[in-house]
Design a protein around this nucleic acid. Structure first.
Lengths: 202, 202
DNA sequence: GGCTCTCCTTACCGACCGGTAAGGAGATAC
DNA sequence: GTATCTCCTTACCGGTCGGTAAGGAGAGCC
């Protein structure tokens, strides 16, 4: 009864709109009725496609994590020393996160909330993403002899540096005004590159 | 009628328990009834003290921000070069954030949600905290000639590095197991210190 | 005793939540 | 024509939300 595959194209559209809603209001804050209203369908039409809210949310998470995987694919292929790849990846990630803040917001919300929904046993989608980044760090000369835990700590710190800024956009804009925020946003990538360079070539 | 100051000691206790709830479930997810249940009073007793949910939440935010101000007070006084103070502050902040993850969680939730409650015009409590950190960075030799925007970018990246890890504790524990997480947590502060040192003495 | 004040109670309210039940519209198959 | 499928509708359900109304208990004051 739950429509197996639906039309796939419409299904992708539903997930896309739901992604906006979940990123902006969180799993509990985004209601099926509100998402359906946005889509100009009824709440029950939405439930027809996905059966349960958790299922819809799961597909949203899946989509976001596959985009992150694609990002690291792009960083790994291509020329350059590991240090350059790492720096390029982080700057790219930063720009990507600033252009699509909803993905960052959704993942941070998931980080905050997934303990409450733990019994549903969603697998953690970004484990592969993290371990690939750790491997990238350990390919640099300065971190070749580091433990996995140390390389992981560095990866997480750099990831946090990028993510925290991207989820702060609305707050910082109100705090410093549009112009004040713009100046800080412009300064960000080169400082990020300097930070990455200074630690990976230490 | 709304009890002016209440008993101050009980009021502080109510705010403390509410802080737990808001940090764990967010403003919308934490219900007055659930907080009251935790306190062993009725929901209406809680409303008696604070009038509205927003008011209670505002006092919670106020308390958290005053703790962050206290942290930077401690870092500014005391001996040492600016570079050492900055490094010491970040490592202290990290340990504080790991011991009291609820404060980090609450602030990140506020970062994600405050746009929706913007019309209530809560002032942003951490503006002073940020500008004091920017000043600390600009006291280091390497950043003396940096613009405010550049120093801010560095501050925000370091803050993100610390905060992102502390809100990830439950997820990472489930991802890597208690032992795997513990190894990564142990490696974190020295990597953080190395990162701070390498960028502030570049 | 009587008045007033704080503190907290029970009893509600309308709005919204996720989810279910049942069935109609329309295309396809035979 | 009839049966069967997907897709979507209207009509509900029980439960929870933040907030209001009204009043009792007890202490302090006179």
């Amino acid at each position: 009864m739950p429509s197996e595959e639906s039309s796939l194209a419409t299904r992708a559209h539903l997930v896309e709109v739901a992604l906006d809603a979940f990123a902006e209001r969180g799993f509990h804050g985004a209601s099926l009725a509100a998402i359906a209203r946005e889509l100009d369908i009824t709440k029950q039409a939405l439930l027809h496609h996905f059966g349960r809210k958790e299922k819809l949310y799961g597909e949203v998470l899946q989509r976001v994590s596959s985009r992150y995987e694609a990002l690291i694919d792009g960083a790994e292929e291509g020329p350059g020393a590991p240090e350059e790849k790492l720096e390029r990846f982080l700057v790219t990630l930063h720009h990507e996160a600033m252009d699509h803040t909803r993905e960052s917001r959704l993942l941070v919300r998931e980080l905050l909330d997934n303990r409450r929904r733990a019994e549903r046993a969603e697998r953690w989608y970004l484990e592969g993403f993290l371990s690939r980044l750790v491997a990238m760090v350990r390919r640099t000369a300065a971190w070749r002899d580091a433990t996995d835990a140390e390389a992981f700590a560095l990866v997480y710190q750099l990831l946090g540096a990028v993510t925290y800024f991207s989820i702060s956009v609305p707050t910082l804009t109100r705090m410093y005004g549009a112009d004040g925020f713009e100046a800080r946003r412009e300064a960000f990538p080169s400082v990020l590159a300097a930070l990455t360079r200074s630690i990976s070539s230490a």
